[in-house]
């Protein structure tokens, strides 16, 4: 028997996107294939399609993120939806309203979809369980748990540059412990059949039992990057460096910052990715970030197409 998945409706179709964990490969592939068509839409004179005309999409950002919010907003607008942005950190909750009261009020304003970013893991799940059945929820990052559209846009980017997932060696580098992006990437790569996923990080920035996610652990960049096809860097959050986890930014860069020398251990045609925003000189050297192997800006462009695919598939199910 299949495990119950709160993201799927009775027909096994995607109703909410909360996490990549537990999604079957055909749903992921459908999202990626649909995104491919939206890439070409963005190259036209009119970059919009009428799919979500008349739908109201609320961006509920309880945690700041200019880029993610903007790409969701652009994606929704290119689908012809009406978009309402709420930076809730600065309004209702500070007046004492609970999360679900906020959601109820916005539902009463005829919301069709919520895009939710929250510092608490599980916030999007909570909202998805609470809303009326016609409303869809997209997790745009919850605590340390998941950031599924980032994971999807990352595998979409890989697919654009590398033909076959089942022949790839992929390394994820940096603060795995606090990273919802890393988690979503690992799940997506696993579902799509990538045979070798490596994580490279100091012990203090790795979750315990990370091997159970099906990854190989390295603490040394030269060994970890050897012959990889894809290098996925993670953002090192400034607040981590003030705690006991890391001695200093300079020290981190010395051992784990991606420089041309370290990248030379990867395959010559390896691509370099980063979810942004980048800390140049901390996790990645400027020369690499802007270099020939970098696909960091294409990731941003593809992120819009992938979010269009997710929103249109959800709205149609």
């Amino acid at each position: 028997m299949k495990k119950y998945n709160p993201q799927l409706n009775a027909n096994g179709e995607l109703h909410h996107l909360l996490s990549i964990e537990g999604l079957p490969r055909d749903i992921l592939t459908h999202i990626l294939n649909t995104a491919e068509s939206f890439v070409t839409v963005a190259e036209r004179e009119v970059k919009k399609v009428p799919l979500l005309r008349g739908k109201a999409i609320f961006n509920l950002f309880f945690e700041n993120s200019t880029r993610t919010r903007t790409t969701f907003e652009i994606a929704a607008k290119r689908l012809s939806a009406d978009v309402i942005n709420l930076n809730i950190g600065s309004s209702s909750t500070s007046k004492g309203e609970t999360l679900l009261d906020t959601v109820d009020n916005l539902s009463a304003m005829q919301a069709d979809m919520f895009v939710v970013r929250h510092a608490q893991s599980g916030a999007a799940h909570l909202i998805a369980k609470h809303v009326a059945p016609h409303i869809h929820v997209v997790n745009a990052g919850d605590g340390r748990h998941a950031h599924p559209t980032q994971g999807l846009l990352d595998v979409f980017t890989i697919r654009r540059y590398k033909e076959d997932f089942t022949r790839l060696r992929v390394a994820i580098v940096g603060d795995i412990l606090h990273s919802r992006v890393a988690r979503s990437e690992i799940h997506a790569l696993n579902v799509l059949g990538v045979p070798e996923i490596r994580v490279i990080a100091p012990k203090t920035l790795l979750p315990t039992n990370v091997e159970q996610m099906g990854v190989h652990v390295y603490h040394d960049m030269a060994q970890g990057l050897k012959d990889v096809d894809v290098v996925m860097m993670l953002r090192l959050q400034n607040e981590r460096m003030r705690g006991a986890l890391l001695p200093s930014a300079g020290e981190f860069f010395k051992y784990y910052g991606l420089t041309a020398d370290k990248l030379a251990h990867a395959r010559p045609d390896a691509i370099v990715m980063h979810p942004g925003p980048m800390n140049r000189g901390i996790e990645i050297d400027s020369g690499v970030a802007d270099g020939r192997q970098s696909v960091i800006l294409p990731q941003v462009t593809f992120g819009i197409a992938v979010r269009m695919a997710v929103m249109s598939i959800l709205a149609g199910n």
């Binding site: 179709e13 459908h30 294939n33 649909t34 491919e36 068509s37 890439v39 070409t40 839409v41 036209r44 399609v49 009428p50 799919l51 249109s312 598939i313 709205a315 149609g316 199910n317």
Partner: peptide
């Protein structure tokens, strides 16, 4: 043309499972 993104029955039947990019 793949007209999947322009169909008028999207709200009834959802997105076609095999959308291909249009190419002009």
């Amino acid at each position: 043309l793949d007209i999947s993104f322009y169909r008028d029955d999207f709200s009834q039947i959802g997105l076609h499972p095999e959308v291909e990019p249009s190419h002009i």
